[in-house]
Every structure is written in C-alpha cells, then in structure tokens.
Design a protein around this nucleic acid. Structure first.
Length: 509
RNA sequence: GGCCCGUUCGUCUAUCGGUUAGGACAAAUGGUUUUCAUCCAUUAAAGAGGGGUUCGACUCCCCUACGGGCUACCA
C-alpha cells in the first residue's frame, strides 16, 4: 500500500467560475503530486444537472492553464486509462456499487416525497429535536425498511420515484486521521442517512466521489475544510464497500476567508470585495454580470501562485518568494495551517510587484502593446521594450503600464500644477531657452550629453538643479514623477525632446 | 439549535515545554533617490479568558468565549 503511486485529484463542480480558493486547492494538490512524483488529475463533478453552468468547465481548464498548474490527466488534459473524468459520463458505473450496498444491507430505498421530508423536518423541529433522517426517524418514513418487502418491490417495478440512502448504525464512533488536523472523531448518532443515489438516476457527490476515488486509484484526498463534516460518511462508505484498506488519506485545507473576516470566500462575491476572486475574468451566462479576474487586473500568474501558496502554508523559513518548482520542492502537508486565512490585498499587491520586477521584459512588452492598440497608438517594438525597462520598477500591476508610460507615446499637453507653482519662476523660461539651444547643438543625443547640456543651461542662469530638474521633468512628461530624466530624454530622442520643451515653454505660464 | 474544526502583532505566519515570542505585508519616523517608485535604518504592534498538568507553558488537558464550516434528492 505504501508503494502505491501518489495520485491526487482536483474535483470542482462546473457551477460557475472557479474562485481563487479553488485554485489554491488545485495548487496544493499539484504541489503534493509533483513533490511525490505522482499524478494530478482533474475530475469534473457534475452530478447535479440542475446546477450546470455553461462555460464553467472550460473556465476551470483555462484557469489552471493560466496559473501553470496543469493536470497530467483528466478533463481537458488528456484522457488516461481511467477515463472518462466527468461524472455525468460515468453515470453507468455507480449503480452497481449502490446495488452492492443495498444487497449488503448498508443502504435502503426511500420513497418519501419532498413534502413528506419537509413535514418530518418541521415536526421534529417543533419538538426541539434534530431534524434529520436517521436511525430513529427512518422508522417513521416510507422506505424499504418500513414497507413490506413486496410493497417495496411493487413500487420499484411500478417505476415509483425513489432514492437510495445509506443505513447508518444508530450509535457508532467513526474516526479517521486527517493529515492536517490529526484524528477526527464523529458519532453516527449525529449524522444522517445521506442520499447516495438520486431519483434522477445520478449518484450524489458522496457516492460518486468514493466510487471515483476508488476506481481512479486516488491515494490522497486534499480538499477544502467544508468537506470535513462529510468525511466520516465517506469513511463509512469505503468500509461498507470493502475498500477501507486502500482508502485514500484525507487532508482538509483551511478555508480562504473574506478580508473582513465574515465567512469564506465565495464565487458569489464576484467583485464585491474590491479585489478579484476569480483567476480569469468571468461573465455569468445567466445574469450577464462580469467579474474581474487576476489576469485582467494585471497580476502575473507566478505571483498568484506564490501568494496563494502562502495563504495557509509556509516553508518554515524566511523565504517568501518561490517559483513553482521551488514550491514543489518545499511543500509538505504538515506545514499547512489549520485555521482559515483572510485574503490580504496589500500582500497580494506586494507579491505582484516583486514578480513584475523579475519578469522578462518581453511579457511586459506584449502587455503594453495590447494597451497601445487599445488607444490606437503605433510604436516600434524596440522603443516599447525600452519604455518597459524604464517603468517596470514603478508599477505593481501590468495593467498600470500605460498609466505610467503614456507620455512616452503622446507628448504632454497638461502639466502638473503643483510643481509649476513651486518651481516655475522668472528664470525658468530663460533656462528653458538655453537648454533648447544647447540641445539643438548636441549631436550625439545620449543621456550623458543631455545632462551636460542641462548643467550648462543651469550655470548660465545661475540656477541650481534642485530648482529646475523637476520642472524639466514636467516640461517633458507633464507629470511630477517617473524614471530617471536624462535616460528618458535620450529615449524620447532629440526631435521629440526639443519639441516637448518648446511646447512647454509656450504653454506654461 | 446540533455536530465538527479552529483561535500568536491590523493581516499572512514562525515557535513542535525553557526564546528579549522571530519574519513578511501594511503603518509611522528618518535617510538615500534633485521627483515618484525603490532601497536602507528605526519604531510601534500579538499568545482570547479562566482553570489545571509541570520545576517551568504560546506550546499538553479541561471549561468558557469568539471565529469558521457543515447541517439538501448542492457540490
């Protein structure tokens, strides 16, 4: 058993966009698999046909691709020997195991209607008892345990609607070892006879998940904490099906919480929190509502991976910047924390900033080119690349590229008032005139020569650099801050630089 | 309500019985950068409360409080 190849799965249901909590779950699965030389599988859990959202499945696939954690097996990533990987396509497989449970007395047919179930719950609630379908209440309901055998048979043959429920023991301690939390104990007296097989002929999540994990040879189930309460049920299913000896190990991850601490992050949060909850932009096909994505908000996938990894895990060292391979190397489940983590926008921004500085300029060039296209601006790639090299230190998100570099492509027409008020005086036009004259005479337009000309202009007018340099910047770009001035001017080129200064001279009063 | 899980600076976290409780983000201050962004330095900032166990508890146990999750023919 110990030499079984590690196989883990990420098993989202296609009920909408995948949110970053889901991406983190996928990431931890990926890291664990790669760390142990195992397989990472994408399985689509679409047993609820009523909640299917068109496009969601493709969205999940695209998201995993964008962040760079691609499953090596599963829907959209190559069907292996365990195909299919979509539960709706595995429908036929589940029935035999349901029948097995039925035959072995671990499950039973139930014919109660929704109304009857509601009535039962209300009745129990009124008498202050837990309203659950359990070892006690099932004796008062309509099922194969209370019905005469021939009546059950008649109903089944008649095609009456039914579900199959697990038959839990009245009082039995169920325990399992969670890789993150240690031993967890639950008594079946607090659980209920969950539906395993729905009246539409589909298994519920509980049944499908056990059958699939078993038949796909899954060795470790790494999923969100919201599944912790149903884990005992799953353990019992493995036991009743006779698979307990190869039952996967469980690891329930702490949840990603909203920054205000009120509840877990949900896909319904969309843009309400002031930061994206989705990796990619998502348009809800039903409401038409568009929610922003990390990609479109200017995040780099490497940054998203890194910041997500650290929301609930840490290496135990002071290193905070990790590439994906480094994460694979460092990741262990025992360093995953037990408590939920609130998403921190500031930290996320910081991470992205770190990665923007490290990223290959080509990525930034590509991004800026897109932004230029949007404004219908044409520029040669070489120039764009130099611009990116100059402004990459200034930005936190790739989408800020244009905001910080627009004056490289469009000469300014408005000038920062604060700087003008502070620095523009009677000598300024004189310095500007001299500077223009000296620059016209500069043949080799390098930043060093520009600086020389600049200093000459200052000397002639007995003006200190402190008094004029920022004014020089505003004349060239219109704004108060930016990259080193002389390098910038070199990039603008002689003609544009002089033109900018001439314009400034005319416009600034 | 019931069950389960959790609780260290504002946030993410380190600490696996003995530490001046460490780091990062954010914040504040100072310096560098003629500007902005950086960068550097400094400061401020935490063991929910109460009982045990122990020579000694942030660390182990119990209770309370608080937070979160689950409680569907949803996953």
């Amino acid at each position: 058993m110990t030499e079984r190849k590690v196989r883990v799965r990420f098993a989202p249901s296609p009920t909408g966009a995948l949110h970053i909590g889901g991406v983190r779950t996928a990431l931890y699965n990926y890291l664990f698999a790669k760390k142990h030389g195992g397989d990472f599988i994408l399985r689509i859990e679409d047993t609820d046909q009523g909640r299917f959202v068109p496009g969601a499945e493709q969205y999940i696939i695209e998201s995993l691709k964008w962040v760079g954690i691609e499953p090596n097996e599963g829907v959209g990533f190559g069907e292996g020997i365990y195909a299919p990987y979509k539960q709706s396509e595995r429908k036929a497989m589940y029935k035999q195991y349901v029948d097995q449970l039925l035959n072995d007395g671990y499950a039973y047919y139930a014919f109660d209607t929704a109304e009857e179930l509601d009535a039962m719950r209300e009745r129990l609630k009124a008498s202050n008892v837990d309203s659950k379908y359990d070892a006690i209440t099932r004796t008062t309901m309509i099922n194969s345990l209370t019905l005469p055998e021939d009546e059950t048979k008649r109903r089944l043959e008649n095609g009456d609607a039914y579900v199959v429920r697990i038959k839990l023991p009245r009082k039995e301690e169920v325990k399992f070892h969670d890789e993150i939390r240690g031993w967890v104990h639950v008594n079946t007296s607090t659980m209920d006879d969950k539906v395993l097989y729905k009246s539409d002929g589909m298994p519920t999540y509980h049944m499908a998940n056990i059958v699939d994990d078993y038949s796909m040879q899954i060795t470790h189930v790494i999923r969100g904490e919201e599944w912790l309460p149903s884990a005992p049920l799953h353990v019992l299913l493995y036991r009743y099906l006779g698979w307990e000896s190869i039952m996967p190990k469980f690891a329930h991850l702490p949840l990603l919480l909203k920054p205000d601490g009120n509840g877990k992050l949900s896909k319904r949060d969309g843009d309400k929190l002031g930061f994206p909850v989705f990796p990619l932009e998502w348009k809800d096909p039903n409401t038409g509502e568009v929610s922003s994505g990390y990609k479109q908000s200017g995040y780099l996938p490497e940054a998203v991976i890194n910041l997500l990894a650290f929301l609930g895990w840490n290496p135990g060292t002071h290193q905070e910047l990790f590439t994906l391979p480094e994460l694979v190397e460092a990741f262990t489940l025992d360093r995953v924390s037990k408590h939920g983590a609130k998403f921190d926008q500031n930290k996320a921004k910081w991470y992205n900033q770190q990665y923007i500085r490290k990223v290959d300029n080509k990525i930034l060039v590509e991004e800026l080119q897109k932004q230029l296209e949007f404004y219908n601006i044409k520029a040669v790639e070489k120039y764009i690349e130099k611009v990116c090299a100059l402004v990459k230190e200034k930005i936190s998100f790739v989408k800020e590229l244009w905001d910080y570099s627009n004056y490289f492509f469009v000469e300014p027409s408005v000038y920062d008032e604060t700087v003008i008020k502070k620095r523009w005086n009677e000598k300024s036009p004189l310095v500007l005139n001299d500077l223009i004259e000296l620059l016209i005479g500069t043949t080799n337009f390098t930043h060093a020569n520009i600086e020389t000309a600049y200093n000459h202009a200052l000397d002639r007018n007995e003006v200190t650099s402190k008094d004029f340099l920022q004014m020089f910047r505003v004349c060239l770009t219109g704004v108060a801050g930016g990259p080193p001035i002389f390098e910038m001017a070199e990039l603008f080129g002689k003609e544009s630089t002089i033109n900018r200064l001439e314009n400034a001279k005319k416009r600034i009063k």
